[in-house]
Design a protein around this nucleic acid. Sequence first.
DNA 1: GTCTATGTTTGCGG
DNA 2: TCCGCAAACATAGA
Length: 279
Amino acid sequence: MPELPEVETVVRDLLRAGVVGSTISGARNGWPRTLQGISLRTFRKRVVGARILDVQRRAKYIVIPLTSRQWLLIHLRMTGRLHIEGADQPVSSHERAALQFADGRELRFVDTRKFGRWRLVRDIDTVLGDLGPEPLAPGFTAKHLHKILQSRRRTLKPLLLDQHVIAGLGNIYVDEALWEAGIHPCRISSTLASADAQRLHSAIRTVLRRGIRSMGTSLGTGKGNFYSVAGRRGRNQDGLRVFRRHGEACPRCEATLERLVVGQRSTHICPTCQVMRKG
DNA sequence: GTCTATGTTTGCGG
DNA sequence: TCCGCAAACATAGA
C-alpha cells in the first residue's frame, strides 16, 4: 500500500487540488482512534480558524503545517485515502476523519481498515524525530548507505523495512530494489561489500523514482488498494519486476521467480539473480 | 459459510 | 540489540 512513492503522489495531488491557504472551519471524526491522542472536541478547538500553510512528505507521513504553529501529521498505514470534496458530496461510510474548509470543500480521510492515524502536534520531532534518512535526499549517498548497513548485523530486508534506519520503503519497493540490485533479502547487512551497497543505493532510488513517476502502485481493484486524491489509480503495478510475480519468468534471466517469507513478510525474488553468498 | 493472507506500525517478551 | 509474534482492523480470495 502506501509507501514513499504513493504518499508522495498523494501530497502532490493535494497541492494540485489547491488546499494550501484553506482556512479550517470544522472537523469530523468517525473513528475515535484515528485522531491519535486527542479528542474531537480538543482537536476542533485547536484547528478551527487555522490555515493550511503547505503539504509536505516525510517518510510515509503527510506533513501539513498550520498557522498557530501546529502540524497535522497523517499516516495512511494500509488503506487510508484522502479526498478533497465539496461539503455537499455524500460521505463514505468508511470516513474516519475530515477537515471542513471555509470555502465549502472538505479534506476527507477514508480508511476501511482503520489503521491510519491523524496526529496534531506542536513539536514535529515527537513523531518524526526518530526516522531514518530520506532515500531520495541529495545527502543520502551510497557511502552513507554502506555505513548504515555495516553498523548493524541484521537480515537485510527487515533492516530496509525499518523506518528508523531508512524512511519510506515498504514491502513492494524493497523487493523491487533488491531484485534490481541482485541481492538476496536474507543477506546479513554487515556483509555487504561497498559495491553491493552502491548497487543497492542506486536500485532503491531507481525504483522509488519510477514509482513516483508512475504515481504509485495500485494492485487489484479492492478496497485495500492504493488510490490517490480523487480516486486516481497509479500505474506502477505495470512496472513491477518481481513483486507478486512468483511463477513468472525473471525479466532479466528468465528463471522462474519465487515467493518466500522473510521476517514474516512475503518476499519475491529471482533465485538466479539473487543468490545468498556470505552471511 | 470458513479459513487464510494482507501492502504498516507498535509494543511485548525472550 | 535483535527477533518473533500479536495486535490494531476489514476485506478478498481460496
